[in-house]
């Protein structure tokens, strides 16, 4: 399923959407960055409540397909800038990571 389809189905707010055709192959939820970088798989949609600039670096290096900021958290300005500079898909949602996760799983299993 494409990033754009996940975004539409979950009603996400687009913060930076450079590659909406990229395939979302799974999901990962977590806020400890070293944990995420070591465990998230390439192509995953990553759900987190972290909103600082390091989220962009971790997303880029872990090669996730999109980052979804959960619980309606607002990204720091440096995060927005780094996401734009590096072509990282950044979205947000008022839903929590748990709800986003099970909805995403439902979408990916369709």
């Amino acid at each position: 399923m494409k990033v754009s389809e996940v975004s539409d189905a979950l009603g996400l707010k687009q913060l930076n959407a450079p590659d909406e055709d990229r395939e979302v192959t799974g999901g990962y939820s977590g806020d400890l960055l070293s944990w995420v970088i070591g465990r998230a798989a390439p192509g995953d949609a990553w759900m987190t409540i972290m909103s600082n600039v390091n989220v962009a670096a971790v997303g880029l290096l872990a090669d996730v397909s999109m980052i979804i900021l959960a619980e309606g958290v607002e990204p720091d300005e440096p995060l927005l800038q780094k996401a734009a500079l590096n072509g990282i898909g950044l979205y947000s949602s008022p839903m929590g990571a748990y709800e986003l996760s099970w909805r995403l799983k439902g979408l990916l299993e369709k």
Binding site: D31, L32, L33, S34, W35, I37, G38, M50, N52, N54, V55
Partner: peptide, 16 residues
């Protein structure tokens, strides 16, 4: 608070 300090840095380096 920034999301670091999970105690996974060196273990990740070893793992990868």
């Amino acid at each position: 608070d920034l999301g670091f300090g999970a105690g996974m840095g060196l273990p990740n380096m070893k793992k990868y």
